[in-house]
Design a protein around this nucleic acid. Sequence first.
DNA 1: CCTTGGCGTCAAGAAGTCGCTAAGACGCGC
DNA 2: GCGCGTCTTAGCGACTTCTTGACGCCAAGG
Lengths: 229, 229
Amino acid sequence: MTTAPATRILVVDDEPQIRSALDVNLRARGYAVDLAVSGEDALHRAAAHHPDLVLLDLGLPGIDGLEVVRGLRGWTAVPIIVLSVREAEADKVAALDAGADDYVTKPFGMNELLARLRATLRRHQPGPGQPVVRTDDFVIDLEAKRVVRGDVDVHLTPTEWAVVEYLVRHPGRLVTQRQLLQHVWGPQYESETNYLRVHLAAIRKKLEPNPSQPRYLITEAGMGYRFEL
Amino acid sequence: MTTAPATRILVVDDEPQIRSALDVNLRARGYAVDLAVSGEDALHRAAAHHPDLVLLDLGLPGIDGLEVVRGLRGWTAVPIIVLSVREAEADKVAALDAGADDYVTKPFGMNELLARLRATLRRHQPGPGQPVVRTDDFVIDLEAKRVVRGDVDVHLTPTEWAVVEYLVRHPGRLVTQRQLLQHVWGPQYESETNYLRVHLAAIRKKLEPNPSQPRYLITEAGMGYRFEL
DNA sequence: CCTTGGCGTCAAGAAGTCGCTAAGACGCGC
DNA sequence: GCGCGTCTTAGCGACTTCTTGACGCCAAGG
């Protein structure tokens, strides 16, 4: 029997006690743990090791935890669970808005944390990780970066692919214009919604059975887009 | 069987009769009660004993009850239920704006008080933050920014969503008009309650089974709104 | 019994957003 | 330097969403 590679978790916290408590408990459950002590450290380690999940304390010295969330979301959809003290209610909402997946309030029970961690991982690995998304009208192979409609290949330009991939990797979920822009074009883009309009139109023309009445790539006016299975 | 440690309640009131009435009734229900006779006393005792809930009379000699709320919120998110006489309407709103969780008007029925107390404790227990909120009539997915009623999607506009999200993220708690306005429209808005009326009406039409007799989005006249699970 | 204040409702106009098209700019391989 | 695919930019009508004001209702208080 081959052993599945361990799930890699990046723990970001400046308090040594919490760091080592998490380290011990996670290792005991068979996770591979990477530790970061600051926001900068976290961003570097994430870029270097591509963890499967990030456990992020919001109250960091230096770079704010919120900035770390944004920094990560600029290029990756890795699930992020935020830790914060109860007072920082507004920060938690802001973190979720910035793209965090869940949050746990300190002080937390280790069991609750582990449960949320498993739930978040489960959500982000739909079953035995199927890199292929099927609809009635087309098939998207995320691994091979191919789209087939009927029985012919559909060619997507790089930008179109980036948009489609991001939407498809968050099925059913509302993706804000900011999220899409920053993921596809870069962190400094946030208000160029005309890019999205043009490229979405092009994508719909290629994928939707009836581009003028989209069934899969839904616009939510004033908010963003949603990929409907 | 291990005995759960008693829930600790800090009672703050300068009137001896009310203090002892609360003391007796709360002890009879198995709560551990700590008594404070003034605002200063309350702040000291809260810092020393970390109560699980604070019952705070607004009409205190010396430090105002409002200041006590602010003082507590500076470092703890302990639930606060405010007691006040009916006349002090403005004080109640101010206390809620400062971060109190609920209020009870004096003279109060002991049963009502106990019910609110249990409700407040209950919702502070399991940590907030489920990304999905269910009621008998609809499901709100905070993560996906999606609302389903029965089995059809309900479409919310950006403003409607912002209002619903804020209320739902503070379930059971009385949210003042100010809080909603400033969170949704921005800091400079505080008295445009007509916005709230119009948008709440639209939301109720979409979510409530009987919009003219709301079950979930409750209006508290003169104060604000409450999302009741 | 009447006034007052807060709320719900409705409708119309204002403001904002989106889809679509087409033209110009860019970058890469040849 | 040329051509091709691709991306950016601009503009317009259509549509969605927000704001605003008027009106009626109800409860509290004089």
